[in-house]
Every structure is written in structure tokens, then in C-alpha cells.
Write a protein that binds this DNA or RNA. Sequence first.
DNA 1: GCCCCAAACAACGA
DNA 2: CTCGTTGTTTGGGG
Lengths: 258, 258
Amino acid sequence: MPELPDLEVYAGNLTKQLSQKEVADVFVFAEDKCNASQEKLQQSLISARVDSFRRSGKEMHINFSNGQKIGIHLMLMGRFDIVSDLEPVPFKLLAIRFAKQYLTVSDPKIWAKITLNPVESKVPDALSADFTPSYLVTKLMEKKTKQIKAFLIDQSIVRGIGNAYVDEILWEAKISPESKAGKLPSDVVNCLHHSICHVLQRSVKEILAINPDIINGEIREFMRVHNKNRQHCPNGFPIKVSKITSKTTYYTDEQRIF
Amino acid sequence: MPELPDLEVYAGNLTKQLSQKEVADVFVFAEDKCNASQEKLQQSLISARVDSFRRSGKEMHINFSNGQKIGIHLMLMGRFDIVSDLEPVPFKLLAIRFAKQYLTVSDPKIWAKITLNPVESKVPDALSADFTPSYLVTKLMEKKTKQIKAFLIDQSIVRGIGNAYVDEILWEAKISPESKAGKLPSDVVNCLHHSICHVLQRSVKEILAINPDIINGEIREFMRVHNKNRQHCPNGFPIKVSKITSKTTYYTDEQRIF
DNA sequence: GCCCCAAACAACGA
DNA sequence: CTCGTTGTTTGGGG
């Protein structure tokens, strides 16, 4: 459910709520969703303090004062909660106990993944400085026959863009999702790069404006086209729905195909 | 160009013309199209006699009296010729000299392939006894999501059917080329098996009736639907043309989709 | 709304 | 009308 902007806001709020807190205990409820045992996590984390929560692509990274890290991928339905009692939280995968509260990671589908000390990805994050226009050009040429929508949500090309925000980005850039990566003119590529950064950063602000303290759930009401509740985009064009590479896609006739 | 029925007729005619003839010499004009050098072929074949030419899938096999074999795949444009002088034959890949004539294999695209002692394929030939209805059923289930046209021309499933005859077969069986392999009812599968054998064997006779001595070139004028010169099939239905898995396909609305 | 794998399909070259 | 290789898309499952 959460995509990059949601996770970005969660990171700030979780950092605000939990930084400097000392880990009292760690519980793993689904060993097969974690690359380390409960014992290993306890050894690694107990008595360390939280430094920060940082988003990396679609994962959340928790950095601890002793240099240990935890990576969490929420997949489709995972969520964070901060609770005083574990009992009421259903579908728990992980809980970290602090003095008088717990951070839980839960997922009714049990698809979320927990990683102790995840390796740094070499793929640029969509909001990182190394995701440059020239990197984008190079990859577009390498993947010239790939549909631009499939290209942008491919986490091995750029990390963080998901199926909802890619529609917003392509709509803002006025590019049809079916365009071939290798066919975008260079002015359109520059426009696309700008739209990626602009849409994602603007969405962070829009989420904060609606729910400044959010650490789970999604806010999508501000979306321009990837939005079940709209029939028209802000320019008044009717929103169309179809499947592009098996994924539900919202777009309008304003978007040019290349 | 040549498909199974053409090759079947070539095999009979080449056997008729060349069997018992003794190999005087062998010339290889394109070493990269052959798995053996000219010297190796000369050592293997000189002074052996031709036993027979036999079609195997879309390949021609020449069997020699000393147990050696040559496999020839003509690909799209390759051809056999029997000539008294090599000079006029363009695009030669291979020539076998007999007492006073040559058998040549030529190909303007240089795609044809020559194989000394090809290994026997374990995939059944479409006209062999091991291509049974029950084999067909098994493979249809294994490849259940594959389009039936793509299925039938896949040489790893059954050898010998190409893009022209598959259209004739599917038209005779009244099966749409887009049908999924796994969805054919069992009576339709039996009908399909019968059509495969019937269309191919009948076409051998039709070619022989038109040109009994043919050893190259193609005869397609008798084709019911895969035929540029027809607008209607024999039943009067208009012939439609489209692309199925990138291949030109002729069919009519008589053919049911499963 | 996610990611993975296997299988099918498309694009290109020889 | 042919085949092989590579990369992309599809479909099913967790």
C-alpha cells in the first residue's frame, strides 16, 4: 500500500517518536519473513538506541546507535504501529520493545520482509542525488523497447516509484504509459525527470498537510488521475482506466505516446 | 520456404535420382554453416554411396552406405540442385560431386545449416508413428497457456509443421489459432491430430500431382487458406489475415476459439 | 498497492 | 517461409 511519499512521511514521524529510545527487547513472530532469528536480533539490538528511520526505495531502514540496521519492506499491506500492549495487534511479524511502548510491524498477508543489516542497493533512489537526468537517459537507452510505465516501476532501474505514483508522474509529464522507453525525445526526458522529483516531493507535503503524524495507512485523496473517486483530471479530461503490463493504469488523452 | 510436404517429396525424388551413386568429392563453401570442415567431410564421404534421402522434421538427412549421414536444414530460402557444372549455381554452401553431376545446397541468405552425423532428435516427427493422440494430449496439458498455433509450430513439441501448413491444419480442424492449448476438448484434440496427419499427407500427394519431380522451390497453389491468391476458403468464408505470435496467419470465422 | 518465478511472447540478427 | 538469443510481458503464487 504505502509508496515512496507515504514512507518518507512515516520515516520522519517514526524518527520523531522513537529516536534516542533504547531497545529493551525484540520479538520475531514469523521467522521465515526475517533473515535472522529472534535471538540474533536480540543480541544485535537490545540496549542500542534508535538513531533514525530512513526510507530507501520502498523500504524503511531503522538505524541504531551501535551501527546495526533493520530493513523493513511492507509489501502490499504491511504497517507500523506504536502501541503500549502487543495483544491487540493482529498479524504481527516483528515487535521492538522500548521502555513503555512497542513498535510493531504487521501484515495480514504475511508478505512483508524484515532484514537485519540489509546490503546497500546500488540502484539510485528516485529522490537521491544520484538519480540524475543523465542516468535516466542512459537507462532509457539500455531498455529501449520497454514500456515507460514498466520502466519506471522497475526497482532495478530506479527505486521507490510504485503503481500509483507512476500514473501521477506520467500524467504530469504528459507521456502515455505505453510509450517505449527509447523513443522519448530529450526534452521529454528532462520533463519526465522533473515530474518524477516534483510529484514525489509535492506528495510528501500533501500527505503532511492532511495527516502530519501518519505512520501507517495511505492518503490518496489528492491524486490527480490514479484515483477511483475522480472521473476527470484537473484539466477536465476524462480519466481512462486500463491494464499496462498487468497493472491497473489511470491516464488521460492528454498524454502523448512515443 | 519448403515445409514438411515439400521436403517429403524432395526426399523421394533425390533418392530416385542419386541413390547408389558414389561420392567423388565434397566441397564446403561456407565453413561456418557446417559442423565439420571440408577435409572431414571428404574423409567421411568420398567413395561412399548414397543409400537414401529421408526427411526428419524440417531437415533432410542423406544416408550413406558407410553409415555416415549428412543433415541439411534449408531454413527460409535454401535449395537443392543437381547440376553438371558448379559455376552457375549462386550462393553455394555445399556441393557433393558424383561421377558426372553435383548435388548442391545453396542459400542466398546463407542461413541454411549442414550437419555431419546429426544426433537423432527425441521429439516426434509429425508424420511418425510416435506422434500419437495421447502424446498430443500430454503436451497440450504441459503447455496449457500457449496459443495453439505457437504450440504446433514449436519444433521442441512436434517436428515438421511450419507457418503455412499450421494454418491449413487449424482451418481443417476448425480451431482458432489463438485458442489456448490446454482448453481444447478431447474430441477436438482427436480432430486436430487427424487434421495434422491428413493435411500433411494429402499435401504430399497434391505436390506430386502438380510437379512429380520437384527437388526445390515450393508449390502452394493448392492451399485452402494460407494463400495470398484466395479471398475465400473452399466453404466460401472470407479469409482473414493477422499476426499470431508475430507470424502471418490466415484463418476464417469458421474456426472456434477455445 | 508488492515482489518472485516460470513460461510465453516480441525484437533482432544470422 | 526459419531458428537462436535476448529482453519484456504475462500469469500464478506467496
